[in-house]
Simulated assay, not measured.
Amino acid sequence: MVEETYIEKVCIVRANSIVVDTVPRFSSDDSLFAEFSKQAFRQINPEYPKFFKMDSLSKLAVLAAEYLLEGQPIDDLALVLANRSGSLDTDVRHQESIQNEQEYYPSPATFVYTLANICAGEISIRHGLQTENAFFIAEDYPINTARSYTEYLLKSGKAKRVLCGWVEFFEEKYDAVLYIVSPKGTNKHSAENIKKLFE
């Protein structure tokens, strides 16, 4: 039975850069997320064309997960994610297509991404995960809720490790802070240490 849990690895994507465990992994001068994410994903994995068809929120989540999970075991990995805007960025584009009287025809490719938890689904598809997952909507990262749920998953044996974090995208403003929690490590999975990830 798991007694102690730790923050094992961290990936932060913001301001046109990707940092894994305080080590810069990728940066770009391109201010548009579409170009930045394309370049960053091709650097680490040029062999997954589905990435380029996703909405921006899913691209952000999958991109951060790709860097975070590099070289990591993925068996029995659960997902606990959160953001502030849900799928609002995609929802706005979907609504605009509905209201366009000249070209009325809502795109199924856009509609499929009008749920925030689809980004968790895209991570699961990409890595073949068949485990527990949850997606919370909150003004700020719900540290206590995410921590409690993660502890439950690990201590009940429902997962061996949990990928947790924040994936926020709205109108070209984006921020991803993903981290892996497991029984291994030195950085305790405490509310205080989680809060430090967002400072």
Rank of each mutant, 00 (worst) to 15 (best):
Glu151Leu: 15
Asp175Leu: 02
Cys119Gln: 04
Glu101Ser: 10
Ile180Cys: 07
Arg25Lys: 07
Gln130Ile: 13
Asn100Gly: 13
Leu63Cys: 05
Gly71Met: 10
Ala64Met: 04
Ala65Cys: 03
Lys188Tyr: 13
Ser28Trp: 09
Asn133Ser: 15
Ser56Asn: 06
Pro73Cys: 12
Tyr113Pro: 06
Cys119Ala: 02
Arg14His: 06
Lys195Phe: 04
Leu197Gln: 02
Ser87Met: 10
Ala116Met: 06
Phe136Gly: 02
Arg42Met: 07
Ala40His: 03
Gly121Asn: 05
Asn83Ser: 05
Thr145Gln: 15
Ala116Asn: 05
Tyr141Ser: 02
Ile98Glu: 02
Ser56Ile: 10
Val10Gln: 03
Met1Gly: 11
Lys53Pro: 06
Val19Lys: 10
Glu199Trp: 08
Arg93Phe: 14
Leu63Phe: 03
Ala109His: 08
Pro73Glu: 09
Asp91Gln: 13
Val62Trp: 00
Thr186Cys: 12
Val23Gln: 15
Val181Glu: 04
Val23Cys: 05
Glu168Gly: 04
Phe33Ala: 03
Phe26His: 08
Asn133Pro: 03
Gln43Lys: 09
Thr145Trp: 15
Phe198Trp: 04
Leu69Pro: 04
Ser27Ile: 01
Leu163Thr: 00
Ile118Met: 06
Ser27Lys: 12
Thr5Gly: 12
Val80Cys: 06
Asp30Ile: 13
Cys164Met: 02
Val13Gly: 01
Phe135Ser: 03
Asn45Glu: 09
Asn83Glu: 05
Glu3Asp: 13
Ser58His: 07
Tyr48Arg: 11
Ala40Cys: 05
Thr5Glu: 11
Phe170Trp: 09
Gly128His: 04
Ala64Val: 04
Arg84His: 12
Thr110Glu: 06
Pro46His: 10
Ser31Met: 07
Ala159Lys: 05
Asn187Met: 14
Asp55Gly: 06
Asp175Lys: 01
Met54Arg: 03
Asn100Thr: 03
Leu178Tyr: 00
Phe36Asn: 02
Met54Lys: 12
Phe170Met: 14
Lys160Ala: 06
Pro49Glu: 06
Ala40Pro: 13
Glu66Lys: 01
Lys38Asp: 12
Ile12Asn: 01
Leu153Val: 07
Tyr104Thr: 14
Tyr6His: 11
Ala176Thr: 00
Gly165Ser: 08
Ser37Arg: 01
Phe26Asp: 09
Lys195Met: 11
Ala109Ser: 10
Ala159Ser: 13
Val23Ile: 11
Leu153Ala: 14
Ala120Arg: 01
Asn100His: 15
Asp21Ser: 06
Phe198Arg: 14
Ala191Val: 08
Ser27Phe: 13
Tyr104His: 15
Gln99Tyr: 09
Arg25Val: 01
Val62Gln: 04
Asn45Cys: 04
Pro183Ala: 15
Gly86Lys: 00
Pro142Trp: 13
Leu153Pro: 09
Arg84Asn: 13
Val23Ser: 05
Ile7Thr: 08
Asn100Arg: 13
